[in-house]
Amino acid sequence: MENVLEVKELTTQFKGKVGYLTVVDKVDFTVRKGEVMGIVGESGCGKSVTSLSILQLLDKKGKVSGGEIRFKDIDLLKQGEKELRKIRGKEISMIFQDPMTSLNPVLTIGKQIGEIIVKHEKQKGSNVKSKVVELLQLVGIPRANELFHEYPHRLSGGMKQRVMIAMAIACNPSLLIADEPTTALDVTIQAQILDLLRSLKDDMDMSILLITHDLGVVAEICDRVVVMYAGQVVETTDSRTLLRNPRHPYTTGLIESTPQQSTIGKRLKSIPGQVPTPDEYGMGCRFADRCPKAMEICNHGVPPLLMIDENTSCRCWLYKEEEHGV
């Protein structure tokens, strides 16, 4: 299958008190055409920074210091600000966790969506309005004609997220980056939004890069997943394998610590300790001090990301050993 996005050895650093801290460390993944790729991890694992790095939307303190981000045939890291602006919103668009702060409170919804169409598609007048109304209907907003003239604060959280999605898909992007799109929403609304994303993917043949901390969301919608921990990819596989047969001890820990029907009455497993901050990264595996299977070697070197089978790779010394054993 065709790759829409290829991220190779992406490294992003942030200015800290002393020098630069590596927040995203040589992250590799690809997004294929028409699939939902998930990036899962806890806060501080670098998943949001990864997504911001793709469109180079990092604030002043951060910079992409290495790697390659290939979108179709262009390397995004080699593009100037002007070229990037053409890509952002048109080819790759993004939705954020908090729709309340991402919408401009003083513009009507119709204006905000219309602006994008005018800017990227060079259309005018009544064409724009009918396109906007069409988009609003597409994302499931009732009374689209009336809401065209409404201001964002009049909408509920779920509706705002729908408007954000409408803005994001206004120009038929080939890639949609969704950063925790349902975290701020209620469960019933979350189900609606996930449903919407799934149908958009199917109908428009869009690729989605979904960033989330919730394995439930992964199971619902993702085709393949990257698990990140402390700035590194620790496991990449398809979502079914990940949830059924997790390889990395961190992934196993994450799955076991999620309360589920099957865990009722039992004590939840949990991962002791906490995610290290970038200035605490040691020489060894970054998960070593929380890992139930830690060995001597784990403290001495960062394990490489190994291909275990054709669609699974994992960053753990456990698998290195097995390979040697065979």
Binding site: I189, A191, Q192, L194, D195, D214, A219, L243, R244, Q260
Partner: peptide, 25 residues
Amino acid sequence: QALISAIPKSDPDEVKERIILTGEL
């Protein structure tokens, strides 16, 4: 019923017969 069915299941094989509520609060 709707609330319970809206819990994202982390088991990919669980039947996904979800009741999706229409409308908003």
